[in-house]
Amino acid sequence: MDIQQTSEATGVIITLEDAKKHCRADDFGDDDALISLYIDAAVDWVQSVCQTRLERAEFTATGSRFDLGFAGYPDPEITSVGYVDDLGAAVTLDASRYALRDGRLIVYGAENVASARVVFVAGLGPGNVPARLVQAMRMLVAHWYLNREAVGAGLAQVPLGVRDMVATYRSFAFG
């Protein structure tokens, strides 16, 4: 199934104030917009490297059949499950006709499925992200803030300390 994020993430993993303090830029507001962009980029980078959703958001999965695993989408809560049958009739399933088992969606009694749709909310959410990943994001924001270009002798795009902090979570699904 193809999964797309269909809502804005809820909660904040790193606040602007926290990032500014880490960057030692908390005495002025001139760079707030820039630091906010770095925060978004750092969260996105860590999510991509770890292959898991840190921010809690709504997702919609669509496909020609119910073949949905939640690796990389921790703590999933299914909002709705439905399908269109081969005659074009839309069917919405009640909660007794589907279940989560071993990180996969199990659907009972769905016949002649032409297209399937599953809406769910997933992600670790603020307060549940490991401290090491939060610190790696802070460090990444500060690095990008202080070194606006990835050029120069000995200057890496991503500091080795950040890579080391994130390494233990790579290719690891939290849920």
Results as ranks from 00 to 15, higher is better:
Glu58Asp: 12
Ser7Cys: 00
Asp40Val: 09
Trp144Lys: 11
Val81Glu: 04
Ala153Trp: 12
Val49Phe: 02
Val121Gln: 08
Ile106Lys: 15
Thr79Glu: 12
Arg56Phe: 02
Gly125Met: 01
Ala42Arg: 06
Thr6Asp: 00
Asp26His: 15
Ala114Glu: 14
Asp2Ser: 15
Thr10Tyr: 00
Ala57Gln: 08
Ser64Thr: 15
Val121Pro: 06
Ser96Glu: 10
Ala99His: 03
Ala71Gly: 11
Ala122Trp: 05
Arg170Cys: 13
Arg24Lys: 12
Arg97Tyr: 10
Ala61Phe: 09
Leu87Thr: 11
Ile13Leu: 13
Leu140Thr: 00
Gln4Leu: 06
Tyr145His: 05
Ala41Leu: 11
Val134Glu: 03
Asp32Phe: 00
Ile13Val: 13
Asp94Ser: 14
Ile35Tyr: 04
His22Glu: 15
Ala19Lys: 02
Met139Arg: 07
Ala116Gly: 03
Pro130Phe: 13
Ala116Tyr: 07
Met137Lys: 11
Leu105Asn: 07
Gly161Tyr: 05
Tyr73Glu: 03
Asp18His: 09
Ala173Gly: 13
Pro74Asp: 05
Tyr108Lys: 13
Thr6Gln: 09
Ile35Gly: 05
Glu149His: 01
Met137Leu: 10
Pro74Ile: 05
Gly69Leu: 07
Glu111Thr: 15
Leu100Met: 11
Arg56Val: 06
Ala156Leu: 05
Ala110Pro: 10
Glu77Ile: 15
Ala95Glu: 12
Glu8Asn: 15
Ala110Cys: 10
Leu133Lys: 07
Ala156Ile: 02
Ser48Gln: 13
Val43Tyr: 07
Ala9Asp: 00
Arg148Cys: 06
Ala173His: 09
Arg101Ser: 13
Leu37Gly: 12
Ala89Glu: 14
Ala90Lys: 14
Arg163Gln: 14
Asp164Asn: 13
Glu8Met: 12
Glu8Cys: 07
Leu105Pro: 04
Gly72Tyr: 06
Asp30Trp: 13
Ser7Phe: 10
Arg117Gly: 05
Ala41Phe: 06
Val12His: 12
Val121Thr: 14
Asp40Ser: 10
Thr168Ser: 15
Leu146Ser: 07
Ile39Gly: 07
Asp26Cys: 12
Asp18Ser: 11
Trp45Arg: 04
Asn147Asp: 04
Asp44Val: 13
Ile39Gln: 01
Val129Pro: 00
Gln47Asn: 14
Tyr38Pro: 05
Glu111Asn: 10
Leu155Gly: 02
Arg117Lys: 14
Gly103Trp: 05
Gly125Asn: 08
Phe59Asn: 03
Leu68Glu: 11
Asn128Asp: 08
Gly72Ala: 02
Ala19Trp: 01
Lys20Phe: 04
Leu37His: 14
Ala25Glu: 09
Thr15Met: 01
Arg101Gln: 15
Val141Ala: 07
Ala142Tyr: 00
Ala136Gln: 05
Tyr169Thr: 06
Ala90Cys: 10
Lys21Tyr: 07
Glu77Pro: 03
Gly125Leu: 00
Tyr169Glu: 09
Arg138Met: 11
Asp102Ser: 14
Arg24Phe: 09
Leu133Phe: 01
Glu111Trp: 11
Arg101Val: 09
Ala131His: 08
Ala136Glu: 02
Asp75Glu: 14
Val119Ser: 14
Arg117Pro: 01
Pro76Tyr: 08
Trp144Ile: 05
Ala153Leu: 15
Lys21Trp: 00
Ser64Phe: 02
Met137Ile: 13
Gly88Phe: 00
Ala110Ser: 12
Tyr38Thr: 04
Asp32Thr: 04
Asp85Glu: 03
Phe174Lys: 02
Leu160Ser: 11
Val141Ile: 10
Phe120Thr: 04
Leu54Asn: 06
Tyr83Asn: 08
Leu16Glu: 01
Val12Tyr: 01
